[in-house]
Nucleic acid binder design. Structure first.
Lengths: 108, 108
DNA sequence: TGTAATACCTAAGCCAGCGAGGTAACGACC
DNA sequence: GGTCGTTACCTCGCTGGCTTAGGTATTACA
C-alpha cells in the first residue's frame, strides 16, 4: 500500500497520542493512525518502527514484550512521564502551527 | 534570529500562497509569512531561498528582476498557471491532513 | 498449499530544512 | 567618518526523517 507523505515531524505526535490511554504495540499504533484518520494517514513501517526506537531512546516511550490480543508476542509501548509532558508540548506546538497556517491560508 | 522548526513540506504551500495575489520578492515573502503568522513561523533564509529556486526549477514560480518599494533591485516571484494549480492541490492536502490530525488529537 | 494478516525489523538513498557563513547597498545616528 | 540596523540576495555542510524496498516468522483460512 502506498505511503501518505507525512509532514515530517508530525509522526511523533501521532505515536505519542496513540499510546496516551495505555500500552499499544507498534503494529496497532500504525493501524490506529490509519483508522482514526480515515486512511488519510497511512504510516509506512519503515517510518514507524524507527520512530518508535527513537522515542524509546529518548526515554519518551517504554517498551515491554507481552502477549497481544491474537496470542502472539508483541512489543508494547507506553508513555513515560517525560513522554506525557512531551506529548502536551508537541500538541501545543501542532495547534499553534496549524492555526497559524490556517490564518495564512485564510488571508485574502 | 532563531528558526521555528517547520513541519517539512509546509513551506512550499506558504510561499505559493504568499505570491497568490501578485509578484513578491523573496525577502518580502519571508516577512509576510512571519507577519501573518504572528511570529509563529519564522522561515530561515537558508530554507527560503533554496525553496524559491526549487519552485522556480519546477516551473511553479517565475522570476523577474524589478525595483522594490525601497528603490533597489529585487527578484520578484509570481505564480505560473501550474503553480496556481499546485497551490490548490497543496492547500487541499494540508486541509485534509490537518483535519485528520485534529481528529486524531480529539479522540478520547 | 499458498495467500493474507499479524508483528517485527533493517538498509540505501533522497532531500528539505537548519545553522552559519558571506556580499552589497542604503539610511540613520553620532 | 564610522557604525549599526535593515533590506536583499546567496551558498555550503550537515543532520535526520521519510520513502522505497527488501527481509523474517507466526497464525488463520481457503
Amino acid at each position: 500500500m502506498a505511503g501518505s507523505d507525512l509532514y515530517t515531524g508530525t509522526l511523533d505526535l501521532l505515536i505519542l497520542k496513540a499510546v496516551s490511554w495505555g500500552p499499544r504495540h507498534g503494529y496497532a499504533i500504525g493501524r490506529w493512525i490509519r483508522e482514526t484518520t480515515s486512511d488519510v494517514l497511512n504510516v509506512q513501517e519503515g517510518a514507524l518502527y524507527p520512530a518508535l526506537h527513537r522515542l524509546e531512546r529518548k526515554r519518551l516511550l517504554e517498551e515491554e514484550w507481552r502477549e497481544s490480543e491474537t496470542g502472539r508476542q508483541a512489543k508494547y509501548y507506553s508513555l513515560t512521564p517525560a513522554g506525557r509532558t512531551h506529548l502536551r508540548a508537541e500538541r501545543r506546538r501542532w495547534e499553534e502551527y496549524s492555526g497559524a497556517v490556517a490564518r495564512a491560508l485564510a488571508t485574502t
